[in-house]
């Protein structure tokens, strides 16, 4: 494992009551301006016919993936995986607001804040976690659906919950599997319409990946070759000079 800790969420879908306290807690804690949000509760809607009905609610936010597609596409280096805790974070000072990561996120868990010109997303309330508190959404979860902690620590609540669970799911498909760090218990989450989509690459980004990156590599290669040639030439010439 690259980083020391691996923080993430476990969500017990059977215990989410869709009260939306987490949505408001996140907004206030992180000063997320209306109408944006960093977290969601997906209402699956009613299944079945009266009176044999079921309804589940699936909370989600940035999944703090082990292999985050958002980092791959970040042109400015603003998006990074914290080496200490594994949380996927955005350095908003460095973010240039290009929005490529918003398109790349298979879970649509990022948004571009047009007023600030930066990308914003769940931070796992890293500022709270650093002072020993739970993320705001977890601390206020009435149903006890949300848990947060270090998967590398076998004594953590999340590790214990996974160890006890009879059914654990990540929202992944055969095609798209960034190894997300939200694990779902007890819910039929694969039916939610929340499955990851393939990362979308915009024209600019496709250009960047398809043309610019090879061009730069080629450029660097050429430049290196050029220098190597020059160096060799100089070396030979030098030798020649020396010989003179």
């Amino acid at each position: 494992m690259a980083q020391k800790n691996r923080y993430g969420f476990v969500i017990d879908v059977a215990r989410c009551i869709d009260c939306r306290a987490c949505l408001v807690a996140c907004r206030v804690e992180n000063e997320v301006s209306l109408p944006h949000t960093r977290i969601w509760v997906k209402d699956q809607g009613l299944r079945g016919t009266f009176p044999d009905l079921a309804r589940e609610f699936v909370p989600y936010n940035c999944m703090h993936c082990e292999h985050p597609p958002c980092i791959e596409v970040c042109t400015s280096g603003a998006t990074f995986k914290d080496p200490d805790n594994g949380l996927v974070l955005v350095d908003q000072e460095a973010c240039i607001g290009c929005g490529l990561c918003v398109e790349a996120c298979p879970y649509d868990a990022r948004y571009l804040d047009p007023t600030r010109g930066v990308v914003d997303k769940c931070t796992g309330c890293v500022h709270r976690v650093e002072r020993g508190e739970e993320p705001a959404c977890v601390a206020t979860c009435l149903g006890g659906a949300r848990m947060f902690g270090d998967f590398n620590d076998p004594t953590s609540e999340v590790s214990q919950a996974l160890a006890r669970a009879t059914q654990v799911r990540q929202l992944v498909t055969d095609e798209v599997d960034p190894d997300p760090n939200i694990y779902y218990l007890n819910g039929d989450v694969m039916q939610t319409g929340l499955l990851p989509r393939p990362p979308r690459y915009t024209t600019a980004e496709t250009l960047w990946r398809g043309v610019a990156i090879p061009a730069v590599i080629a450029g660097i290669t050429l430049s290196f070759l050029g220098q190597a040639v020059a160096f060799t030439k100089q070396l030979i010439e030098g030798e020649q000079e020396f010989e003179e």
């Binding site: 009260c19 408001v24 807690a25 206020t140």
Partner: peptide
């Protein structure tokens, strides 16, 4: 330690 949506708002 908890507040509902109304309390949070």
């Amino acid at each position: 330690g908890m507040l509902c949506a109304r309390g949070q708002a």
